[in-house]
Write a protein that binds this DNA or RNA. Structure first.
Lengths: 369, 369
DNA sequence: CTGTTAGCGCGTTCAC
DNA sequence: GTGAACGCGCTAACAG
């Protein structure tokens, strides 16, 4: 692979001149510029990012660490991140942590070794121990979706407490009193917030809380399936189920199917996180759709400000609200009045996310300010 | 950020010794090793990947370039790629080309500058012009899903000709004679193959081909929606629609809904690429499920062989077969005999992909051979 | 077993 | 306007 030296030799100039032409910094005579450009083209020269990064202390890369990229919620966040990053000439390295703090830690260390310019992460753990190296090495970091205690970084997340209240109130308004919560891992802030909102809504309605109906474990589909099954097999099963995310909903769905329970006739089902493709094929699952794309774009904007040093104050927290999409899985009537704000009616919600732009920004790479 | 020199100074040894301890290559006395490890730990030392890469001519990164990561088909491929890459200590940079040859070219150049160790790509164009820099710089490359003419690289793809035949025969067996094909961009090999298989199946059945029923354009949902609409609004609309991928199916679905056509009573609908989440919520769309996860893992294996030099012969092509998942959208009876191999019966197909392992490999990073 | 040395390819002073 | 020279942090000989 041709180096800057090869180009310099062919163009009959010094490497400094080539560098000036390629990076566009510094004065070069039009004549030399032509020579260099011609030589670079002839050789198919591509600057070595590692050498450049070693010198400039910048890789032009940011890391996005999510629990599971196969989950459309995180995929959508990733598009938001990439679209904003690319406009600033940054590119995104993606990593799946599989909800494992150990894997997360390994990725964090790898990213530091890669000398990424910043990290956006949906942390798996309750504490920040796996993120500590980021702080120690002062790598700009932004948390998305989830927060952790005691880690001083910007956060972009949705309001899960209010969200859970909205969903629970919807079920209560439909007459349900025995509502099960199939929650994710309590180490994550969203799981704790969703449980809190759930309890608050029940308390508001003066519905006694049956602790056997509240289940938490991992965020994996199979686990949700098993836990839902256990609850359904009890003496007094719930009449409604609230799943803490789209994967939990799929697990619950499997469990209900195995038992031949009809939705919503036998059991109502609602969940956090829309499943856009599924909604598109059959607008069925009533869901609280979080603004995933926006979470990605905002998180990246905050990160860019940290990277460029435009913003140096103490951590910011951006809390976004979500939309209730009322569809068929809870048996709500079309057009009925509903409790809660941000309600989007229409049981056949068209599934087009209001969150993600239909036409994506072109993403012409530009230089980071 | 601490450097190898800082560690050497604190440990009272030379940088070479530190390097030996950190990279695990070469002999070091237990005593020195302890010193180094302690110093590294105290300083929170993380080796600089760019400096290392500059020296070793290896970044430890591979690039995966896909048209749209939000499409579950490509997401699943990406998991396959990551799972295999991580086992070899490689990590994955992801890029969306948005079906644009220009964006693809920009990414290719960026990846060469990043000095990725290899590239896996689902190319957007018909020719290899945007990939040419990879060849010129002899960057190991593997094509997934799609192939392009005149580019000497390993290919891992599914058999779209046979696939389209299988889907078309299924529709023919159900009595359909006016079948529309909503195809993707003819610049992609899969679009051409799918059209070829479609035509072959019709010819086999001695069904005259009405060219007005064959439509190609982009791979975007909105475009598929518009083209489906145009065909549905003709004098003699089709009784069945074959969508060339999951996104095309969603576009067709929208178009059918807007016109109040019922599926399958008024129009049958089948497509390439399963939509796992949607199938999970409601196993509705009859689809030809391609082994996406396996495509990702195999492509990565081939790439690793190229990177390590284990395999140097001329390009290989791996062609995988797909499964027909018969569900409700075509009105097939449960248990009826079906034309074509690799048929998986069961209109309520459980949606669990046989392709992707339920438990993912742990992915302990190891050194690339 | 360990230290010295020489670059990997680039950007960046500092002279000219 | 341009070139010479240094060093970013690391690994790989080569001595010792």
């Amino acid at each position: 692979m041709a180096t800057i030296q090869d180009v310099a030799r062919l163009a009959g100039v010094s490497t400094a001149t080539v560098s000036r032409v390629i990076s566009g910094r510094g004065y070069v005579s039009p004549a030399s510029r032509e020579q260099v450009l011609a030589a670079a083209d002839a050789l198919g020269y591509m600057p070595n990012g590692m050498a450049r990064g070693l010198k400039t202390q910048r890789s032009g890369l940011i890391a996005l660490l999510v629990p599971e990229i196969v989950n459309s919620f995180y995929t959508t966040i990733s598009r938001g991140v990439e679209d904003v990053a690319n406009v600033s000439g940054l590119h995104v390295i993606l990593g799946n942590t599989d909800e494992s703090v150990a894997k997360e830690r390994a990725y964090v260390e790898l990213m530091i070794s890669t000398r990424v310019d910043g990290v956006i992460i949906a942390p798996a753990g309750r504490t920040a121990t796996s993120l500590e190296p980021l702080l120690a090495n002062s790598v700009p970091t932004v948390l998305v979706d989830r927060s952790v205690s005691g880690f001083p970084a910007d956060v972009v997340r949705a309001d899960s407490i209010t969200g859970a209240q909205t969903l629970t109130r919807h079920l209560l308004a439909l007459g349900h009193r025995r509502i099960a919560l199939i929650n994710g891992h309590r180490d994550t802030s969203v799981a704790r917030d969703r449980e809190a909102g759930f309890r608050t809504a029940l308390a508001e309605a003066q519905v006694e809380i049956d602790e056997r109906l509240i289940s938490s474990g991992t965020w994996f589909i199979d686990d949700a399936e098993a836990r839902t099954g256990a609850i359904l097999d009890e003496d007094t099963p719930p009449t409604a189920i609230l799943a803490a995310n789209n994967f939990m909903a799929i697990g619950a769905l499997r469990s209900l199917r195995e038992r031949g329970r009809r939705i919503p006739q036998d059991v109502a089902l609602a969940c956090f996180d829309d499943i856009p493709d599924a909604a598109e094929v059959d607008p069925f699952l009533t869901a609280l759709a979080q603004p995933a794309y926006t979470m990605g774009t905002l998180a990246t904007r905050l990160l860019l400000e940290r990277i460029s040093g435009t913003f140096r104050d103490s951590p910011r927290e951006i809390v976004l609200s979500s939309h209730l999409l009322i569809r068929r899985s809870c048996g709500a009537q079309l057009g009925e009045s509903v409790v809660g704000l941000n309600v989007e009616l229409g049981p056949d919600g068209d599934g087009r996310s209001p969150d993600r732009p239909a036409v994506l920004p072109a993403g012409k790479p530009a230089v980071l300010a």
